[in-house]
Design a protein around this nucleic acid. Structure first.
Lengths: 334, 334
DNA sequence: CTGTTAGCGCATTCAC
DNA sequence: GTGAATGCGCTAACAG
């Protein structure tokens, strides 16, 4: 492979001159520059980015670590990141967090192959992240809270989201409200649950323990939880699922039992995943503005890299997406 | 940031010794090694991967360029790539092709930041790829054919897929077969169309020009094409859509017009995208084994890097996925 | 087993 | 406007 040395030699100039010419610095005589560019072309010269990065000790690209490259990951979020990074002339590369800690993720985190990193992977061990903290290496963690004030957090207001969803059901006249939750140690789930409880409390509705179920955030879990709910005999009039996956599963279970959604039972999810709008009936849900999250994360990293930054924690609001799976109670209609 | 030099100094050894110790080579005395590791820890030393890569002139990671990181990209394919690369201890990083040719994609392609690259992005200009051809830098292009024999192609047998889909419809007794195609310059579409034509020909069915429509591979395009089909008066008894997106759109149009699928009309797609199984009725389609494609691509790149390779073009078969959107003609049933 | 040294390929400072 | 020299941080001969 031709190096800049070869180019310089062929053009009959010093390496430094070749470098200037190749990088379009104005210092070089137009004539000379032309000769260099030609030499580069005939040699099929391609710069070695690694050497360049090493010399300049920056890469001008930032990494994003996702749970699993084979997604489906938050496409809107990714778009947000991409767009704003692009306007700042930064590159973006993604890698997955799977594979233990001898993976590409750790290469990003620990080996300075990127100038900063955005983490969107629950499964990446806290310690790995904490170990990677160092000066001038911004780390943005999405949707997760770590105990270090060198790390910038971008969080979604799960509490308010849970509150919103529940309140919506209450506004519709429902008083018998079940909750199908995610893994109990999951922070998002905890906060959504808190929001649910607070909304009930504010409306003076008592919480009914047998209506609090666990669905592990999976479609199957939601399905089972719904089945259990029905087997108990005292079915609620509405259910709030802590994510859409579970809502999809629950919906299926209810429909299989001959219940009509939303006439017999209202159901609301959380996340607004893609298929929520395609299922029947289309699912009402709570949406996080993922584009905004991504865009904010990218912006923060850019700022951290170029201007410095003070605040550390950012909390973004949620919004209600009303579709066809929720409606007023029959009681009200009557 | 601490460098290996600092570590060596603190441990009171030479840099090389520190390097060996840090890389767990057996050459170093256990005692010394321990001292080095400790020094590294107290200094919070983290290796500079860039410098390492430069020195060794290899990165042990390969890049995959996708159309748009904000997907939905072929998750099965990605999983195939990931899995097999992992078994070979290679890392994987992904980037998007958007943003002109000053992007991360070109950094992958031209600046030796990865050892090889898999391209899954239609929009990436041919020239950019062709320019990046060089020795010992394997380039695998998926689902697209370029004019260079240094490039390895992995293609799907679109012709057979088109043939399969059409033949399935014919086997069901259909003789009035419409085709809703993608962009006419699109090679996949051309081949699928060829397959369709061949199947008709082999069964002695004459092709009906007014049943050949264009849907641009989009849901809306499929919808419009279906509408046109119905407005023409002589509706076919079955339609083959060159991709699932269009099939989804067409399905919607037909249902809106009161047709019952599959009783009144059979419809088959291509790709087996995720929602195909959730729509009503679930869509029959033709599937490419994306996992296999990804896995093959990864395997090829590994081979090219480590053992050399001879063959250049690989064509993978398609398979029929039968669901509820196709059935025997009413005529046959009668 | 350990230390010395020479680059990897490039950008950049300082002379001229 | 151009060239010579330096070093980014690391690994891998080679010597001891």
């Amino acid at each position: 492979m031709a190096t800049i040395k070869d180019v310089a030699k062929l053009a009959g100039v010093a390496v430094s001159t070749a470098s200037y010419a190749l990088n379009h610095k104005s210092r070089v005589n137009a004539e000379t520059a032309k000769r260099v560019l030609e030499a580069a072309k005939t040699l099929n010269y391609q710069k070695n980015g690694i050497a360049r990065d090493l010399k300049r000790s920056k890469t001008e690209t930032i990494g994003i670590i996702v749970q699993d490259l084979s997604g489906p990951f938050y496409s809107e979020l990714m778009r947000g990141v991409q767009d704003t990074l692009l306007t700042h002339q930064y590159g973006l590369i993604a890698c997955s967090s799977i594979g233990g800690n001898v993976t590409t993720a750790s290469k990003f985190l620990q080996e300075r192959r990127v100038d900063g990193v955005i983490i969107l992977a629950e499964s990446l061990p806290d310690e790995l992240i904490l170990q990677s903290v160092r000066e001038d290496f911004p780390i943005i963690v999405l949707d997760r809270k770590l105990d270090s004030d060198s790390i910038i957090h971008v969080l979604v207001d799960n509490f308010s989201g849970g509150y919103q969803a529940t309140q919506h059901l209450i506004d519709l006249g429902h008083k018998e409200l079940a909750y199908i939750g995610g893994p109990s140690h999951n922070r998002d789930n905890q906060l959504r649950f808190e929001g649910y409880k607070q909304a009930l409390k504010d409306s003076g509705i008592t919480l009914h323990p047998s209506w609090i179920l666990q669905g592990q955030y999976t479609r199957e879990g939601g399905y089972s939880a719904a089945k259990i709910l029905m087997m108990q005999g005292n079915a609620p009039s509405a259910v709030f699922c802590a994510n859409d996956e579970m809502a999809v599963g629950a919906l299926k279970a209810f429909k299989e039992s001959g219940l009509h959604i939303p006439n017999d039972l209202s159901i609301i999810g959380f996340d607004d995943i893609e298929i929520s709008q395609y299922i029947s009936p289309p699912l009402s849900t709570v949406k996080q503005s993922n584009y905004e999250i991504g865009s904010l994360a990218a912006h923060l990293i850019y700022q951290a890299l170029n201007e410095g930054i003070e605040g550390k924690d950012y909390i973004l609001p949620t919004e209600l997406v009303l579709r066809k799976s929720t409606s007023a109670t029959k009681k009200m209609e009557a």
